[in-house]
Design a protein around this nucleic acid. Structure first.
Lengths: 347, 347
DNA sequence: GTGAAAGCGCTAACAT
DNA sequence: ATGTTAGCGCTTTCAC
């Protein structure tokens, strides 16, 4: 068996209390005893057992993280940001994915709670009515949403995200400024992501503000990287084809660009494409993908810091300002979205 | 405080042992008591506290994962595979990144060990001489390497990866079959990744086998997505420019393609590019990125299953066949690597 | 400054 | 089939 605080104590000729004190508040131990204990710790290769500590202390200095998937770089970046910030604050991270299955959210959180994580960061399908969040609240476990953005009627729920509606609105306004009028939205399943819905809302607002007729959104199964054939017929016909496509995320935008190429359409000459997320690889594309850049790593970092603040304030002292953290987005102007030119007449 | 097994017991009018038994081996409790206990559990919202269980049992059903970064999709996919497989086996995952800093590997593992993880999956800079692995072995903690591939003189270390040397050799052979003779390797820091070194070895072997003169490898700082200017002069000069570039990973290949475009060089007409990793987004590029496809998710899954087998066999019964898990790689043939054509004479 | 002892939630003998 | 009890490693009063 691994050495415990007990062996260290007896070997150093002190009580376990003294060893514990040295580990936690070194000031309260005399220099010579400290020295002696340090020696034995090194000699024995002792490492404090967090399990014992956690059981006694009632906290674990561990946070749980639940995201839909790691296949989307956005969430990977976010997790990266969370872990980095956690490490700085001496917290550990327990991670799990749901694969976009809302029914798995609860199970994931249950498991984390059994491990007695001190708090949870999660991205849920729908932050509005959500059994998992209710559970967390009922159990009084601090949690912070990432990417989810709360409507104003969800008080008390903490979330870190960009302003999805406004960001989408900015993106579409950018397309409009380029002269586009037939702009269509390509989106992931609305049911799998409230963000998609909010972005669609932004699309509608931008179109209305410019007195343009919105086109019906095209909802595709998943941002699988395989061709979403649903909208191919549509695009094939130059008469009803939009001149610009606004995609609810970059993976979708990139897939769309691939599909458009397969149809013989050129981006941006025949059709402009704009994404949402600002994934780094978008900048390596040719043409560079125009997109709304979200600060994913920072979303993770802020989410973690907010969560830890909540944990260490005994879940109380979160200033109202901390409750809704809206981080700034930016428009990345790439060549995938270009000024509108009327299609050359067919002959 | 949250309800403990004790409250459940008293409320249900049984001893805590009975409750514990119901939780662990339900068979050994009479149907009626079981029913009654289940009721109270539901009524109280009781959830077993793993901390207590772990302390008592001496295991945590938790594995630690250490990867260099999540910015590279490859590792994100791997972590995804690990977590999915872990969930199936009722294990949890504690995750941490090192940002490619070898000195952080040990600290990361120390923290995981303090949490008493049952085993560790890690990707290290250098699997050969590695203090972290020595530590793990000394402490008799089961571990499995992912992506690292052991040379034959590292007995007893378990690793899951593709055959990096052979895969690189296949990739370069593919370029040679396309008629290329001036093939140069673009690589991440050899010191940060033994895989890069092994892939370079494969490059050398393929060149030798074809009686071609290898060119000196170009080692770039990081697969940052920003231009690596080191090799730009080289490429600018058509006289000494290679006709094909073999990159030690896809991020590097994609960055290189961007840089080549910036220099006015066309891929593949002026220069062919081949990567290594087979990241999904490579297929969305135009031209599609030729690459060596590694099964990242599967690497994670196999690593986890192997680890759990080791854990549950008390780290003993790993068949020799399990020790070195080499997973198959595949060559993805994209348009980024094309048949060699002699450069048009300048005028 | 240091020690003795209780107890966090749970499991596993051992007893009945 | 169920209860009693010891104890996993640790922190934290409460003494001294």
């Amino acid at each position: 068996m691994r050495p415990s605080i007990k062996q260290v104590a007896s070997q150093a000729g002190v009580s376990i209390a003294t060893v514990s004190r040295l580990l936690n508040k070194p000031g309260s131990v005399s220099a010579e005893t400290a020295e002696r204990i340090h020696q034995t710790i090194a000699a024995l290769g002792f490492r404090p057992n967090f399990t014992g500590r956690n059981l006694r202390a009632g906290n674990s200095r561990t946070v749980g993280v639940v995201v839909p998937t790691l296949s989307n770089t956005v969430f990977a970046q976010c997790l990266q940001g969370i872990e980095l910030a956690a490490r700085e604050l001496a917290y550990s991270v327990m991670f799990t994915a749901t694969e976009y299955l809302p029914q798995d959210e609860s199970a994931a959180v249950e498991r984390l709670l059994s491990h007695r994580v001190d708090g949870v960061i999660l991205t849920v399908a729908d932050a509005g009515a959500n059994a998992t969040l209710d559970l967390l609240e009922h159990e009084r476990i601090p949690y912070v949403l990432a990417y989810n953005q709360l409507s104003d009627n969800a008080p008390g729920r903490t979330a870190v995200s960009v302003d999805n509606r406004q960001a989408a609105r900015d993106a579409v306004a950018h397309l409009i400024a380029l002269g586009h009028t037939r702009i269509q939205m390509l989106s992931g399943q609305f049911s799998a992501s409230d963000r998609a819905l909010q972005r669609h809302q932004g699309y509608l607002e931008a179109m209305q503000a410019a007195q343009l007729a919105p086109l019906p959104a095209i909802e595709v199964q998943r941002h699988t990287l395989t061709a979403a054939t649903d909208y191919q017929q549509l695009l094939a016909d130059p008469a009803c084809r939009p001149s610009a496509l606004f995609c609810s995320n970059d993976l979708l935008a990139l897939s769309a660009m691939r599909d458009l190429r397969a149809l013989g359409l050129r981006v941006p000459q025949d059709i402009s494409v704009m994404g949402f997320d600002g994934i780094p690889l978008g900048e390596l594309m040719e043409p560079v993908l125009s997109s709304v850049v979200q600060p994913s790593g920072q979303i993770g970092e802020v989410a973690l810091r907010t969560l830890v603040a909540a944990i260490e304030n005994d879940n109380a002292g979160l200033a109202a300002a901390e409750q809704r953290r809206i981080l700034p987005h930016a428009i990345r102007t790439g060549a995938s979205a270009a000024a509108y030119v009327a299609p050359a007449p067919e002959d």
